[in-house]
Amino acid sequence: MLELRPNCELCDKDLPPQSREARICSYECTYCAACAETVLHNVCPTCGGGFAPRPIRPRQSWRPEEKLGLTNQPASTRRVHSPFTREDIAAHVDRIRHLAPEDR
Rank of each mutant, 00 (worst) to 15 (best):
Cys29Met: 02
Cys29Leu: 00
Cys29Lys: 05
Ala33His: 02
Ala34Phe: 13
Glu37Trp: 13
Thr38Tyr: 02
Val39Pro: 00
Leu40Ser: 14
Leu40Thr: 13
Leu40His: 11
Leu40Asp: 12
Leu40Arg: 07
His41Glu: 15
His41Tyr: 12
His41Ala: 09
Asn42Glu: 06
Val43Ser: 08
Val43Gln: 07
Cys44Asp: 11
Cys44Arg: 08
Cys44Pro: 07
Pro45Ser: 08
Pro45Tyr: 10
Pro45Trp: 04
Pro45Phe: 09
Cys47Gly: 09
Gly48Asp: 03
Gly49Cys: 14
Phe51Trp: 01
Ala52Phe: 00
Pro53Lys: 12
Pro53Met: 10
Arg54Tyr: 08
Arg54Thr: 09
Pro55Val: 11
Pro55Glu: 14
Pro55Phe: 11
Ile56Ser: 12
Ile56Thr: 15
Arg57Pro: 14
Arg57Leu: 15
Pro58Tyr: 10
Pro58Ile: 11
Arg59Gln: 15
Gln60Trp: 14
Ser61Trp: 05
Trp62His: 06
Pro64Leu: 12
Glu65Pro: 00
Glu65Arg: 13
Glu65Val: 00
Glu65Trp: 12
Lys67Phe: 04
Leu68Tyr: 03
Leu68Met: 10
Leu68His: 09
Gly69Cys: 13
Gly69Tyr: 07
Gly69Trp: 12
Leu70Glu: 04
Thr71Cys: 06
Gln73Glu: 03
Thr77Ile: 07
Thr77His: 13
Arg78Phe: 09
Arg78Thr: 13
